[in-house]
Amino acid sequence: MASLWRYLLAGLGLAALLAGVLAIVYLTAPQTTPGPDRSRSKTTANGLFVASFQPERGGVRQGELQSWLLTLKTVKGDPVEGAAIAVSGGMPQHNHGLPTSPQATDYLGEG
C-alpha cells in the first residue's frame, strides 16, 4: 500500500514538473505581431469602393522609380469614373515618408 502512494506522488510530481516546463516555454516564447498589410486590393473604410493596384511593368524593383496602375471600383464591381485621387505613402516601421512625391498622372478608363 505504501508503494502505491509513492507511485501516485511521483506521478503527481512529474505532472507538476511537466506543467511548469510547458508554462515556462509558453510564457517565454516570442509573441508574433501582425506585419504590415501587403494586400494589393482593399475596401475603403466606408465600404463603398475597392481600390486595387499593381506594378505597370513586371514585378517590384527595389531602388528604382516605378509606375503603378490603380483601379477603383464599387463593391459591386462597377468602374468608378472621374474620381479625384490623392497619393501618399511612407514606411511606418521606419517613421518616415517617401523620398519622392507620387502623383496620379492619367486616367486609363475602366476605373
Rank of each mutant, 00 (worst) to 15 (best):
M1C: 05
M1H: 09
M1D: 13
A2K: 14
S3D: 12
L4E: 13
L4N: 07
Y7S: 07
L9G: 08
G11L: 13
G11E: 03
G13H: 06
G13N: 10
L14N: 00
L14Q: 07
A15P: 01
A16I: 11
A16T: 12
A19K: 01
G20F: 04
A23H: 05
V25Y: 05
Y26S: 13
Y26E: 06
T28N: 05
T32W: 11
T32E: 13
P34T: 04
P36I: 07
R38C: 03
R40I: 04
T43W: 01
A45I: 06
A45Y: 06
L48W: 04
V50H: 02
P55C: 07
G58R: 10
G58L: 12
G59N: 12
S67H: 09
L70Y: 07
L70E: 05
L72T: 00
L72M: 03
K73L: 06
K73R: 15
T74A: 02
G77E: 03
D78H: 07
P79E: 07
E81S: 07
G82M: 02
A83S: 06
A84N: 12
V87T: 08
V87M: 14
G90Y: 05
G90R: 08
G90C: 08
P92Y: 05
P92V: 10
P92K: 09
H94M: 13
N95S: 12
H96P: 00
H96C: 03
A104L: 10
G109S: 09
G109P: 02
